[in-house]
């Protein structure tokens, strides 16, 4: 019965703290929300950076055109060499001359294809090489570009098509984004934590008298903490949902701007399903951490 009475008290006080101090509650929610938006946006950007660069760089694919007389076994042999030499090669797919022709036919305008005999369309077998962007760094990317540039000298290889500048630029962008992103993330996470902690401390400082009185009448530290934890959880959850809403709105706005400008037709999906739960969880963790750390210095019994 006493436990139920205390749980009831904690819930009542937690909610009452929010209604008694609407300014503190609002400042707390906004602080948490701003921190989550900053950290969340950057985290999501970093998370999606590989995909973004991969897409910008055309999937980081190379096409190795083989001489028409080259046999399938010779192509397989080259495939094995490529895989053995370059662990960064994720996938090599052999395409026949027929498949190449079909692909070329699709690229040609329909009115031209209508009057064209299929045999007249140039075609040759080729290897499609897909690179693993996660395994490449700047140095390896440069070595790879050099190696593939010399590949046409190998017997049976007719031509190698790849945007060497595209790969280099992609890696330069990715490498820079990773380093800068990690650095900025750390700064923002630390700033957000400091921001949340300072605000919580100020809020708890405003309740110093209340905590002092509770300690005087025999409240245990956990008795004092629980309503604050409940309050922190509610604030954190509210901030989590609020920040998710803001990020969702900004993403939607950004996408419509990009599409209307026809500048970048890249599917920039920053908010995959389940991300609302991450924002909610992050908000609750931040809210609880702020409440716990903010109370520490006020729960001393004696000096």
């Amino acid at each position: 019965m006493r436990i139920l009475a205390q749980i009831g008290y904690f819930l009542r006080q937690g909610m009452a703290n929010l209604s008694r101090h609407p300014l503190y509650a609002t400042v707390g929610v906004l602080t948490l929300a701003v921190s989550l938006i900053l950290v969340g946006f950057l985290g999501l950007f970093l998370w999606r950076a590989n995909t973004l660069v991969d897409r910008l760089a055309g999937g980081l694919k190379l096409t190795v055109y083989m001489a028409p007389e080259v046999s399938r076994s010779a192509a397989d042999e080259l495939t094995n060499v490529l895989k053995a030499q370059w662990p960064e090669v994720k996938e090599v797919t052999y395409h026949t001359e027929l498949e190449d022709r079909e692909r070329n036919l699709k690229l040609l305008p329909a009115e031209l294809v209508a009057d064209l005999e299929a045999e007249l369309v140039p075609a040759q077998p080729y290897l499609e090489v897909v690179l693993d962007v996660d395994r490449l760094d700047q140095e390896r990317a440069e070595a790879l570009v050099k190696w593939f540039s010399a590949l046409h000298q190998v017997q049976g290889v007719d031509e190698v098509l790849f945007g060497s500048q595209k790969i280099a630029a992609a890696f330069s962008l990715l490498s820079g984004a990773r380093t800068l992103g990690i650095f900025i993330s750390l700064v923002i996470v630390l700033a957000a934590l400091f921001f949340v902690l300072t605000t919580t401390r100020l809020i708890v400082e405003g309740r110093r008298r209340e905590i002092e009185v509770l300690l005087l009448v025999g409240a245990t530290p956990s008795f004092i903490r629980m309503p604050h934890y409940i309050e922190g959880t509610v604030q954190g959850a509210t901030a989590g949902l609020l920040s998710y809403g803001v990020v969702w709105f900004l993403q939607r706005h950004l996408m419509s701007t990009l599409r209307s400008d026809s500048f970048l037709q890249v599917p920039l999906d920053l908010l995959p399903p389940g991300m609302a739960a991450w924002f909610l969880g992050g908000g609750i963790v931040l809210g609880l951490a702020g409440s716990a750390l903010g109370l520490v210095r006020h729960l001393r019994f004696s000096r």
């Binding site: 019965m1 006493r2 009475a5 205390q6 509770l214 009448v217 025999g218 409240a219 008795f223």
Partner: peptide, 10 residues
């Protein structure tokens, strides 16, 4: 508040 600390019912 003194009685709430003791866990008395409402």
């Amino acid at each position: 508040v003194t009685l709430e600390v003791l866990g008395l019912t409402a």
